[in-house]
């Protein structure tokens, strides 16, 4: 059965390579692009090319950056003595949304996972260590995910830099607004262990 003109088939095939996009969704998106204004389609194509051409990694913290350094590392109002360590660039965004943190970041590029063969050498842990050894860092906040791999990564980093600076870990516990009776024992146990004075 014919799948339509060759350019449409090509667009469908390209879109179906995207994560979470199956063949039928790709086809629906391709038809939507075909029906849309030429200016909208061109704008989408240019945005894709631009993001590949202009966005790289910051040479200091490995967050996403348009130039050699990201906007956070370039911002003179940030507290340079604080480093928040995250797994991926996408993790910076929710922390920035809190407006509670005014320090710098360090993006590891993943988490230690022995079962997947991801070792310390595969992450930017050596670069973090160099930043800490460079001096002037008063606190490193470990904000890796509260998963098995995230905890293993946090524990490994803490062991490496504990001698040079204060190392803290994001608190773990109950989500605000949740019912206690629905909490799982792991989360509740962590909440109990990390209880604070009021």
């Amino acid at each position: 059965m014919s799948e339509g003109p060759a350019p449409l088939s090509r667009l469908t095939a390209e879109l179906s390579q995207l994560p979470g996009i199956g063949r039928r969704t790709a086809q629906r998106l391709a038809f939507h692009i075909l029906r849309s204004d030429e200016s909208d389609a061109r704008s989408l194509a240019e945005a894709i090319v631009e993001v590949k051409e202009k966005v790289g990694l910051c040479e200091v913290c490995f967050n996403l950056a348009e130039g050699p350094r990201c906007r956070i590392c370039e911002d003179p109002s940030r507290e340079v003595s604080l480093i928040c360590v995250v797994e991926e660039p996408a993790d910076v965004i929710p922390i920035e949304r809190t407006h509670e943190y005014r320090g710098l970041y360090h993006v590891l590029g993943g988490a230690l996972s022995p079962i997947d063969g991801i070792d310390a050498e595969d992450l930017r842990i050596a670069e973090l260590r160099r930043r800490v050894e460079g001096g002037g860092i008063l606190e490193v906040i470990l904000a890796t995910n509260p998963t098995t791999t995230g905890e293993a990564t946090a524990s490994h980093i803490a062991d490496l830099i504990r001698e040079q600076t204060q190392v803290t870990r994001l608190a773990a516990g109950l989500p605000v607004g949740a019912d206690l009776e629905h909490a799982d024992e792991v989360t509740l146990g962590r909440a109990m262990a990390g209880r604070s004075n009021v």
Binding site: I115, E185, V186
Partner: peptide, 26 residues
């Protein structure tokens, strides 16, 4: 949860050994 193995999870050595065992089964 039947067993969460919390002490294993808090140790780098424990996680590495458990990952090796689970990787073998996998």
């Amino acid at each position: 949860t039947i067993e969460g193995y919390p002490r294993l999870r808090a140790s780098g050595t424990g996680i590495a050994a458990a990952a090796d065992a689970c990787g073998g089964v996998l």
